[in-house]
């Protein structure tokens, strides 16, 4: 390692750790699976570390990380083609631009999400909590709450629409001058 590398490495580690959530969200948007997004995130971290010498201090680290993550997502999509939604490359490429923008606003989105979660009933919140437990599926939630899969699916669909509508409305309000 050339002199001064320790300092640079520490900076890289901080940059990598500082964008984990945004990278995960970006990858999740491309893969629509939390498990695969986590795997791809680990791969991305490894590549970022391996190629850290290519990073130019002062440039946009997250933009560079996203380009690496996009490539890792494409690899994951090729390997897990059957398990993932069959979006066209063009759609994903265009969506990735919007994803970058949405992920950049993740902080405000998260705050808004919390506010909107507060508007859910206890029962709705319980369903969401159960659905987002690690490894949970709509079927497993249905079994745990003693309802039909179809009913739980519809409930979760309604809750997600409610949350999304709430978030959209609040963000629209925030954008008003």
């Amino acid at each position: 390692m050339p002199p001064g590398c320790d300092e640079l490495d520490e900076q890289i580690v901080q940059l990598i750790s500082g964008c984990q959530r945004r990278l995960f969200l970006y990858l999740f948007g491309l893969l629509t699976s939390s498990d695969l997004a986590e795997e791809a995130l680990q791969e991305t971290n490894a590549v970022l570390w391996r190629k850290r010498a290519e990073f130019q201090p002062g440039s946009n680290f997250f933009a560079w990380a996203c380009s690496v993550a996009y490539f890792e997502a494409c690899k994951a999509r090729q390997q897990r083609r059957r398990k993932l939604p069959s979006f066209s490359d063009l759609f994903l490429e265009e969506a990735s631009i919007e994803l970058r923008a949405a992920v950049e606003n993740a902080d405000s989105l998260q705050t808004t999400l919390h506010d909107c979660m507060d508007s859910l009933s206890v029962r709705e919140r319980e369903l969401v909590d159960r659905r987002y437990e690690h490894g949970a599926t709509t079927k497993s939630v249905a079994v745990s709450v003693g309802r039909s899969v179809d009913a739980v699916y519809k409930s979760l669909n309604r809750i997600h629409q409610k949350l999304f509508d709430c978030i959209t409305a609040r963000m629209r309000e925030d954008r008003k001058p």
Partner: peptide, 23 residues
């Protein structure tokens, strides 16, 4: 719709992320 896709996905992703942090 691509923007809606992105925002909806990020919303779901945030819930996954937070659940992971929670666990």
């Amino acid at each position: 719709i691509r923007q809606i896709y992105a925002q909806f996905t990020v919303m779901c992703g945030l819930m996954h992320w937070e659940e992971g942090q929670h666990a």
